[in-house]
């Protein structure tokens, strides 16, 4: 993991937060809850127990009814970064490093943005870290899960409502993708699926391989990597990607695909641009 590259990029980036109210601790982003900010959110009739300071006395004068001003809270929304810890993420050292870098960049940018980053590593032994501990957690994170993300999510602590959820994975597994995306988007105002793919995932080189072994399950398949077989793989991969993108859209999420072969700077300027906005402003 090239932490220096991450550190160079963080100052100039900001996470693309959704334009809907957020939840979170007191902060700078409008919350979904009523609070004490200056921005008016709504009016309603007074109920016993309400804060009398919020009574709109002008309205009382006009109408004779006790009308209460409801103002929105200003909160610091949570950002959850979920890193897939399955073995396929370590297909190559570059893929593993790229996944760590994207997760770290999201956490670091969120922290700099004043948000509360939480990192969850869905490995064989789930890890959870917050704030500055995210970096250390990513440094020791292992891609050792023998199952895919949809299965390893069950081992994680429950996903909590958050402002933005970034899921870093290769999403190369057989699962009910709409259901998975729906689950990942639950409780999150915004969802980004950051798909990190190795060069061999995108474009298998073939060679003389005759025994293909699944990185996670260990299942084997006898196959000579001929041109026809490679073409068939490309067709199925493209179909899988279409299905994943559609599932993400239905869950109001965004799929960004990051080829691990490219540098992090190139990824931020390219495929990851929807997630990382240039400018560093919140």
């Amino acid at each position: 993991m090239d932490e220096a590259a991450v550190a160079r990029l963080v100052p100039g980036l900001a996470l693309a937060l959704p334009r809907v109210p957020h939840r979170g601790r007191v902060g700078e982003v409008r919350a979904t809850s009523a609070g004490s900010s200056l921005e008016l959110h709504d009016f309603r009739a007074y109920q016993p127990g309400d804060d009398l300071r919020q009574v709109d006395w002008n309205a009382v004068a006009r109408t004779g009814d006790l009308i209460l001003r409801i103002r929105q809270d200003e909160v610091s929304p949570r950002v959850e970064v979920v890193l897939d810890g399955s073995r396929s993420m370590a297909l190559s050292p570059r893929k593993a490093a790229c996944a760590r870098e994207v997760a770290l960049l999201a956490a670091e940018v969120a922290a700099r943005q004043g948000l509360s980053p939480t990192l969850m590593v869905a490995g064989a032994r789930p890890e959870r870290a917050q704030g500055n501990a995210c970096r250390a957690a990513l440094q020791v994170a292992e891609f050792d899960a023998r199952d895919d993300l949809s299965a390893s999510l069950g081992r994680l602590p429950p996903l909590r409502p958050c402002g933005l959820r970034v899921v870093v994975s290769d999403f190369l597994f057989e699962a009910d993708l709409p259901a998975l995306c729906s689950r990942l988007s639950r409780g999150a105002s915004g969802l980004f699926l950051a798909q990190v793919l190795d060069a061999e995932d995108l474009d298998p080189s073939g060679g003389e391989g005759a025994r293909l072994v699944d990185a996670e399950s260990g299942a084997a398949l006898e196959e000579l990597l001929t041109e026809d077989v490679l073409a068939a793989y490309s067709r199925r991969f493209a179909e899988h990607q279409r299905g994943l993108r559609a599932a993400a859209m239905r869950a109001r999420g965004t799929l960004v695909t990051a080829p691990a072969s490219e540098s992090l700077a190139a990824l931020v300027a390219g495929p990851l641009r929807p997630l990382f906005l240039a400018g560093g402003g919140a």
């Binding site: 297909l91 061999e200 995932d201 298998p204 293909l212 072994v213 991969f237």
Partner: peptide, 10 residues
């Protein structure tokens, strides 16, 4: 053996 991320695609 050749290790792949997604055997189901093959």
């Amino acid at each position: 053996p050749v290790v792949v991320s997604a055997l189901f695609l093959w």
